[in-house]
């Protein structure tokens, strides 16, 4: 699976990348919202992991733009954020996010969630 990871924190990117690669995924990285949007268009990933608090363009903006784009709206977007209040979740789903994972997260759990959720989404579409 091709996964785009958008996060401004280098260490987080590194962390997610390492683990997803180990799980056998192809990982593409982006440092901020703007880059994330560009990479998504170029690469057409199977899944996007998106941080919210980012310079240039925040994750919510990226998400809602992607979801408005007819070509990319079907790419599942999992928000990956340190913001854990109810309001933040609501905003994320409002923007069209498919899932919301709060930081800090368990690396194993992340893998599981990705697998489980992707399976569910596939079942839905077929």
């Amino acid at each position: 699976m091709k996964i785009l990871v958008v996060d401004d924190e280098e260490n987080i990117r590194k962390l997610v990348q390492y683990n997803l690669v180990l799980d056998g995924h192809e990982v593409i990285l982006a440092e901020d919202g703007k880059e994330g949007l560009e990479k998504a268009r170029q690469e057409m990933p199977d899944l996007i992991l998106l941080d919210i608090m980012m310079p240039e363009m925040d994750g919510l903006e990226v998400c809602s733009r992607l979801k408005k784009d007819p070509e990319m709206r079907d790419i599942p977007i999992f928000m990956l954020s340190a913001k854990g209040q109810m309001k933040d979740l609501e905003d994320a789903f409002e923007a069209g996010a498919d899932n919301y994972i709060t930081k800090p997260f368990d690396v194993d759990k992340l893998s599981e969630i990705i697998q489980f959720k992707m399976k569910k989404l596939q079942e839905k579409t077929t």
């Binding site: 390492y18 683990n19 180990l22 340190a82 209040q85 709060t102 930081k103 800090p104 690396v107």
Partner: peptide
């Protein structure tokens, strides 16, 4: 409060994530 919690979580995510990764792999 929400900023602090966010800022605290960011390094925590890295710390937890990497240590978890070391332990896992």
């Amino acid at each position: 409060v929400s900023s602090v919690s966010h800022e605290l979580r960011t390094p925590l995510t890295a710390i937890m994530g990497f240590s978890n990764t070391i332990l896992r792999k």
